[in-house]
């Protein structure tokens, strides 16, 4: 589906042409609106605060690396990157493992109450995570989980499960029954079938739900804000927010910190974009 202009025409793709000028003009306008503010922030990080105050819309003159160097040499920044990574990876692994197990049962077993169980999970799509945040905090406090990675990971897994199951189940259902029969004839049980055949075959769907869970968790703000009071556990979004409210006069520093915080998500998405769109294709199929 990508416009692979460099590929030889021998592939089955339809030939890709240069569009008309209007198409490019509009596409450029869309791109400009999307990324100009982001580029401004990244370039602003190369200026000094006096430069920015004197002329908010100017270019760096001279370019200074100091802001970025300052943020990168802060142990806080790396600590927050580490915390974000632990929380996001923990959430992703939890969602994928629990989601696959439940979706496998809902897709490949016939039993009384199956549709009830499925509806029960899909109901979660109607429960906004935001609305539950206060009682969630109180419960985590009673469980003595406040100020631990679990306080973020467990609720994030729980709230990501409904969407994960909704995306995974049709995928697992679509895998042909013949494969299951063949596996049974070869003496593989249903669990062996799940492990050796289902998981490898459903990798695209697993990657999609994994990416969605990872990005959501990486960007999460409200839950960490309430349950991670301990600054040494702060994730990157909390770190950016604190930095910007603590050093309000250090505009250049804030811009540099914000740019560096954006970077992982941007890089990650650049590589995963196809997976996300491809995975959603199944979910929005009409």
């Amino acid at each position: 589906m990508a416009a692979n202009a460099v590929l030889p025409r021998t592939t089955k793709r339809r030939p890709v042409s240069w569009g008309n000028p209007l198409t490019y003009a509009l596409a450029l306008a869309v791109a400009a609106v999307s990324i100009t503010p982001v580029i401004y922030v990244i370039i602003g990080g190369f200026r000094t605060t006096p430069q920015i105050v004197a002329n908010p819309a100017g270019l760096p003159d001279p370019w200074v690396w100091d802001n970025y160097a300052r943020v990168l040499s802060q142990s806080n920044f790396w600590r927050q990157v580490f915390n974000s990574a632990v929380v996001s990876l923990g959430t992703t692994i939890g969602v994928v493992v629990l989601g696959v197990c439940a979706a496998f049962v809902l897709a490949r077993y016939t039993f009384r109450g199956r549709e009830v169980l499925y509806t029960f999970f899909t109901l979660g799509l109607l429960f906004p995570a935001g609305a539950a945040i206060l009682p969630l905090y109180l419960m985590l406090r009673d469980l003595n989980l406040i100020n631990s990675y679990y306080a973020v990971i467990l609720p994030q897994v729980a709230f990501a499960l409904p969407l994960t199951i909704v995306i995974l189940r049709p995928f697992l259902t679509a895998i042909p029954r013949e494969l299951e029969d063949a596996a049974a004839i070869d003496g593989t049980g249903r669990l062996g079938f799940l492990w050796r055949i289902m998981l490898p075959l459903s990798r695209p769907a697993l990657v999609t739900v994994g990416i969605l869970a990872f990005v959501t968790s990486w960007n999460a703000f409200l839950l960490p804000l309430l349950v991670l009071g301990d600054a040494s556990l702060h994730t990157l979004p909390l770190g950016v927010q604190n930095f910007s409210s603590q050093y309000t006069s250090d505009t250049a520093g804030i811009l540099a910190f914000t740019s560096l915080a954006m970077l992982p998500a941007l890089i990650f998405f650049t590589f995963a974009e196809k997976q996300i769109v491809g995975g959603l294709q199944g979910a929005v199929k009409g």
Binding site: V30, S34, I35, V38, N219, P237, A261, M262, E273
Partner: peptide, 15 residues
């Protein structure tokens, strides 16, 4: 162009 159009959505709400 697609990638560029998605950029704002990918960024964290806080940033």
């Amino acid at each position: 162009f697609r990638l560029l159009a998605f950029v704002p959505y990918v960024l964290a709400e806080v940033t």
